[in-house]
Amino acid sequence: MKRLLLPAAFLALLFVPIEGIPVAGYVRGIAGDLSITTLLLLASSAVALAGGPKLHDRRELQALAAFVLASAAFLYPMALGLTSFDPYALGYPHRMRGFLLGLAPVALFAWFRGRLLLLLAVVLALAAFRFELLESRNLWDYLLDPWLAVCMLFWAGFTIFGLLSKSR
């Protein structure tokens, strides 16, 4: 239980108000909001840290990283105005259908191959979107955020680098 002390103290610190806004508000202001997928990864890390089962082994992370990185590559450049097509708009309620048709094969793949983390990420993101748990009304923001994409990019880079040096 000792190793939980530091994270708990850190968590408590986030609620300390400075000039009427909690520290978490400053972090939020600068870093934006985290997606459900990121929260899921943080939660599964916390569970593992507390001695519980580890959800995110390499196989699980590979599937999730592939999904997050492919989504990020599709989403971010065009959302910044590269084309007249705006993939981000697909995540708003009025354009949901096409998005869900695209997401269904991902969830089906995760189910068939037993990739629990990816399946959980998709299902929890959809449920959270339905109940409007985040400030955003766009499904993309429930599935991924730039921090997650950057972390996954680093993780994928290190993994590939590790595999390459092993095979030498």
Binding site: P93, H94, M96, R97, A107, W111, V123, L126, F129
Partner: peptide, 25 residues
């Protein structure tokens, strides 16, 4: 587990499909 997870993601998809916005698209 397979059945429960299939049911979970099917219902999540169906729920997200349901459009309760009282406005015209």
């Amino acid at each position: 587990w397979a059945l429960v997870s299939l049911a979970a993601f099917a219902s999540a998809f169906v729920a997200a499909f349901v459009d309760d916005a009282p406005v015209s698209s």
